[in-house]
Design a protein around this nucleic acid. Structure first.
Lengths: 203, 203
DNA sequence: CGATTTATTTATCGGTCGATACAGAAAGGT
DNA sequence: ACCTTTCTGTATCGACCGATAAATAAATCG
């Protein structure tokens, strides 16, 4: 059951990784085929044979990002001892992820709100889903805590999630604008100062 | 001292306004000349004669945005009775500005961090300056308050400004992703819950 | 009135975009 | 060996990009 035909001369995963870094940095429309083929070290026909199209490649790089770069948040949220620690880990982890030397600043999924202009409606939906998923993870973690009675039943879980998602997305922009890790960590700590107020029982 | 030559058949200000809406919505690279000329109701040579180039037009639309759309914040900050009210007005005003029916969602200046890919280094600097200016306005308002003794001298003014700027920029992304005005206003109120903690005197 | 100046329309420029046709090269199957 | 299959490099496709040259139209100036 060995492979038929001439074997590929490049590493598919490595090429995909390099494409991801480009799309992450410059967005979909902002990255040209010639930049892609140059960075991936292959010619256009090899790219099309291997990945299908520019958009299919983009979607695959986004999946790779979800799996390896933006990932780990689900586990971190679950591992935290309580909801407050989970949110803090989410923000502080984001501050670190958004400012890794040698990697584009900010979150590829968050920035795709703007950077994915030009992709098909189908792909845009997929991206919207990926962003909503993160929001869903946060809400789920908070609801789990509320279920344990650790949060007042009357507090607005989705509003809390919405607030911290917004802060994290703002951190993506700040990172792109040159903010340092220390600045983002200070922002994260600032956002945690709203925790008591947000989780206080409502009328 | 009347005008020489054939008079222009279109309203320059109106054409600029239409170009602004396009750039605001789709960014610099994402807006093509043919889209611009179609929306402005003129042919390409008229555009070049009147505005110089696509980039010069973009920069002029950004100036227009600064003056008429994003403006009013300086005055609002100054008019507020105290620093807390100023910050709250800034965030609540942003929530309103980012979700005006018939206008693109979010802030053109904030989104330019990502949407201005492709412009010259000179224009990019100008945009960075425009973003820093807003941050400077916030800091100045806070320092004025600290000078009056209404804020502890030990609290970190630039960190407070950085936090609220980050929230506001996050609101721009959320608006682009479809967030409603009510959601953004809730986020703004959430951010104000951090105020007491942020302005408490430090060790 | 011509002469000058400026704006408009039409047609098009060279360049780059994303995407492919084609022929040659390198593997397995028989 | 030969055929089939798959990948590779070259060379290029039509479409659109941002930007203009040239000819025409509409105003003021002398």
């Amino acid at each position: 059951m060995a492979e038929r035909g001439r074997p590929r001369t490049f590493d598919r995963g490595e090429a995909l990784h390099r494409a991801m870094l480009l799309f992450w940095e410059k967005g979909y429309q902002g990255t040209s085929m010639s930049e892609l083929t140059a960075a991936m070290g292959i010619n256009a026909p090899s790219l099309y044979a291997c990945f299908g199209s520019k958009e299919a490649l983009y979607r695959e790089t986004m999946a790779l990002y979800d799996d390896y770069e933006g990932g780990g948040f689900g586990a971190a949220l679950a591992a935290a001892p309580d909801a407050r620690a989970a949110i803090e880990a989410y923000l502080m982890g984001s501050a670190r992820l958004f400012t890794r030397p040698g990697k584009p600043a900010g979150c590829m999924v968050v920035l795709s709100v703007i950077q994915a202009a030009g992709v098909s409606e189908e792909a845009a939906c997929e991206l919207r889903g990926a962003r909503a998923e993160m929001s869903g993870l946060l809400e789920a973690r908070l609801r789990a805590e509320a279920g344990k009675g650790a949060l007042p039943a009357s507090c607005d879980i989705s509003a809390i999630a919405s607030f911290y998602i917004t802060v994290q997305q703002g951190m993506s922009i700040r990172a792109r604008d040159g903010a340092t890790r220390a600045e983002l960590e200070a922002v994260a700590q600032g956002a945690m100062l709203a925790w008591d107020g947000l989780t206080r029982a409502r009328a």
